[in-house]
Every structure is written in structure tokens, then in C-alpha cells.
Design a protein around this nucleic acid. Structure first.
Length: 394
RNA sequence: GGGGAGAUUCCAGAGCGGCCAAAUGGGCCAGACUGUAAAUCUGGUGGUAUCACCUUCGGCGGUUCGAAUCCGCCUCUCCCCA
């Protein structure tokens, strides 16, 4: 794959492809690096695989020798990006933003070589702005232009609130591009509008407008758009076992997209896997992803643990032990109460329901009576609550 | 400044004096089946040592034997007109 194709691999929008080709050529001819910007909004503390789609592209570009510039949108975060949202985002305090910022750069380091990455927070330039500077910036856009944006349009239709400050977000993001003299900005497809505003502002400031590349917003485990608030995302910091297991719970239909955007496998290899057994394909996908973040050894261990627990339906190796005997009165305690007290169930009602539905096993035997009395334990007791929670009681 | 609409259980969204712990869908949990924590089907989904009580329908008061449902004020939101 040549440089041009590597840049636009998986890209949905390329504005403009010919400009990109030319710029790559002239950069190569002059031995210059392109400055490639990616903005992160530290409004929630964790990055997930959805973000990694972009990070992986950045890594590829970094490996080609280009300069990655991460913008941590600490100033922008206090506005709240309206992209892909149909609700007003809460504005964050400086303290929240600071805390998230640290975890963000740590997590980005799981994909990028941070020693070669330039990092800026956009408060570097926005904090110095006076109100008149803000007005001057705001004057560079029109309300009509802002309303073209489909997220605003939808919210207008749905009669949902739009804060005036939200109109500033695209301008701020665009201004970031001006400040760092950006050559290429990448983002999710929902960022296209913001990226284009960057082009306009750069042009007004006499810079060559940036190339804009957008990449797919991937679907989450349940097939809906991946989002932390849907609970269908996989965090970059997740343990190998969790990461592997969660990928295995991916809806089949989403597999092709994940292969393309989250692994380095080429199309032929992907197609061969998808033509085979779906479970094998998914296991390979899970292994690829887990291995990228945790290494091959951890990935194969995760696979073994998964097969053991879910295919062979055996208890995992590392079942936590809990001392139960010391808290048992002579007459014992009902199972539902113990399950709650030991935090396997969040309430005794939940414990009761799960027991009645046949979801609780003691030493492999289903117990259906919530009032089953647990008395002094002669030997240890293996407790399974639902599919995934295990404890060994002593 | 004026007029109208609305705030419901995790989310969306019904309910509009008792039959409402509150329809339906999504999510989630469990079970069956299986290829897996896929798909599909079934059941469950406020709390309580649980079958009777307790706390929920933006907030505070009020009317009533009885309120998510009626009234008053407050907070927040949306739309239209200016």
C-alpha cells in the first residue's frame, strides 16, 4: 500500500483527495513532515475502541514519519461538542477536565509513540483571548451556516435545546487548526463539519487549508453506535480477559466493520475468516485486538480462560475466595441474603429473582429456593451467580 | 414582552382521580437453544430476611376517603409571535 492509500485507508470522507496526493508528494520531495491533528475532547475519562479507529490511523501516519499533533480540548470541553448529540452536554469544570486530560494522554500512549507526538491543550491559546477576540472569532461564521449542520438541524426539529455557546465549538476546533498550522486533520464522520470549519478559518488567515479525513464511527457490541453512555464500548484500559470476552459478545453483523477498522488484517485475510466459522472469525478478531493492547501471551491466555468458562462451562481458574463461615450465625443465613451481602447481587430482590430463574449454582447444582439456608461450611463451596460471577465460599 | 406545550421508573415513551410499582419498545439480567457473553425464543427488570409493607412519576404546598393523574407557587425545557 502506498502512502496515499495508507492515509485514506477506511476513510469515509477525504477532502480533497487530490490535494492530499499533491501534499504528500511535495512533502516527500522537500523532506518535510505533514502536521496531522487529532483533537480529543476530555469530557469523559476513558478512550474506547471507537477512538482507536482514529488512533490507529495516526499510528500508521506516524510510522510513515509524519508529525502527529494531539490537541486536548480542555477549553473546548467546557463548551461540549454538539457532534452526534441530540442533547445539550453538561459543561465540565476545570478540575474534571484536568483529571480526564491525564488519563487521556496515558491512554493514547497505548497506541501512539508519545515521544514523537506533539501534545497541546487548546487552553494554551484560548485562555489568552479577550472577549473581543472571541467576538472577532464568532464573526467569522454565520448562524445560517451553523444551522446547516445536521445535528443542530435535528435538534431544532426535535425541539431540543441548543445553547448559543455550542455554536462556538466548531470555531474553536477550527481555530486550533490555525494555531498549529495543521496540514491534515482527522476525526470521526460526525466531525466533518468541524473539520471543514478549520479549512475555512485557515483560508481566511492565509494558510493553506487542511486536508480533512473522516473515519467511521464503529458500532458497539450490541450493534448500536459505540458510545460509552450506551455501555456497549470496550475501553482501551480493559483487562485482557474482559477485552477478549467482550469482543466475543459482538453481534455477528458488526464483525466485518471491526476487522477493517480495528485490525491490520488485509481484505483477503478478512474475507477468508468471515467465510469460515463465525465463532473462529470472532475469536481471531478478539485475539487481534487483545494482542494489540496486551501482547500475544495475554491474548492467548484470555482465549483459554474464555473457552474454559463459556464453551466448556467450567469455573475460571482465579475464583475469588471469601470467608463466609465467620459471618454465619449458628442457624445459618438464607442464600439470597448472603448473595446480597457478598455483593454478587445488588439487592436481595435481585438475588431472589436470579435464584428463582435458575441462575444460581452451588458446587454446580442449581438452587431454586431463595430461602435455602446456608449453614456452617464443612468444605469450600463454589458459588456461581449468573453466567459470569463466581466466588468460593469458605 | 405576549401566547402555547412539556418535565414519568436505566433510556425512549404511554398513563391523565382508585384496577399504577406504573402500558409498549430498547437496554440489562436469567433460562432454553447454540457457534460465543452471536442470532432466535421464553421469562424477569424499585426496595425490603418478600406475598405485606415501604420509597418512586421535576420541587414545595393544597384539594380528596384516595393523586403520576386535580389546584397553587417554584425550577428547568421546547415551540410560536414580538
Amino acid at each position: 500500500m502506498n502512502e496515499f492509500d495508507l492515509f485514506r485507508r477506511n476513510a469515509v470522507d477525504v477532502i480533497e483527495a487530490r490535494e492530499l496526493e499533491k501534499r504528500l508528494a511535495s512533502a516527500a520531495a522537500q523532506g518535510k513532515k505533514l502536521r496531522i491533528k487529532f483533537g480529543m475532547d476530555p469530557s469523559s475519562p476513558d478512550l474506547h475502541l471507537g477512538h482507536s479507529v482514529q488512533l490507529l490511523r495516526l499510528r500508521a501516519m506516524q510510522e510513515l514519519g509524519h508529525q502527529i499533533v494531539l490537541i486536548v480540548g480542555d477549553a473546548t470541553a467546557m463548551v461540549g461538542d454538539p457532534s452526534g448529540r441530540n442533547k445539550l452536554r453538561p459543561q465540565l469544570s476545570r478540575i474534571d477536565v484536568e483529571r480526564n486530560l491525564v488519563t487521556y494522554t496515558d491512554q493514547a500512549a497505548r497506541v501512539l509513540d508519545m515521544s514523537k507526538t506533539e501534545v497541546h491543550r487548546n487552553s494554551e491559546w484560548f485562555d489568552a483571548m479577550r472577549f473581543e477576540d472571541v467576538l472577532r472569532l464568532a464573526a467569522k461564521a454565520t448562524v445560517a451556516r451553523m444551522l446547516e449542520r445536521d445535528t443542530f438541524e435535528k435538534r431544532m426539529e426535535a425541539r431540543e435545546p441548543i445553547g448559543v455557546h455550542e455554536f462556538l465549538y466548531p470555531l474553536m476546533q477550527g481555530w486550533d487548526s490555525v494555531m498549529i498550522k495543521c496540514d491534515v486533520e482527522i476525526g470521526g464522520t460526525d466531525q466533518l463539519f468541524n473539520l471543514l470549519v478549520g479549512r475555512e478559518l485557515q483560508e481566511r488567515e492565509g494558510q493553506i487549508p487542511q486536508i480533512c479525513l473522516t473515519f467511521p464511527l464503529i458500532n458497539g457490541l450490541d450493534g448500536r453506535k459505540m458510545s460509552k453512555s450506551y455501555g456497549n464500548a470496550i475501553q482501551l484500559t480493559e483487562s485482557p480477559n474482559e477485552m477478549f470476552g467482550k469482543v466475543m459478545s459482538l453481534s455477528d453483523a458488526v464483525m466485518p466493520m471491526w476487522f477493517d477498522t480495528l485490525t491490520a488484517l488485509d481484505t483477503a485475510e478478512r474475507d477468508a475468516l468471515l467465510a469460515g466459522h463465525p465463532r473462529e472469525a470472532k475469536a481471531r478478531l478478539a485475539a487481534e485486538i487483545t494482542s494489540f493492547y496486551h501482547g500475544p501471551a495475554a491474548a492467548s491466555a484470555a482465549r483459554e480462560a474464555f473457552d474454559r468458562q463459556f464453551r466448556d462451562k467450567e469455573a475460571p481458574e482465579d475464583v475469588p475466595e471469601v470467608d463466609v463461615s465467620s459471618r454465619l450465625p449458628a442457624e445459618g443465613l438464607p442464600l439470597m441474603v448472603l448473595l446480597r451481602d457478598l455483593e454478587l447481587a445488588s439487592s436481595s430482590s435481585e438475588a431472589r429473582r436470579t435464584i428463582e430463574q435458575g441462575g444460581v449454582k452451588l458446587d454446580g447444582e442449581i438452587v431454586r429456593d431463595p430461602k435455602y439456608i446456608v449453614t456452617a461450611l464443612a468444605e469450600s463451596l463454589l458459588v456461581q451467580f449468573g453466567k459470569r460471577k463466581f466466588q468460593r465460599w469458605r
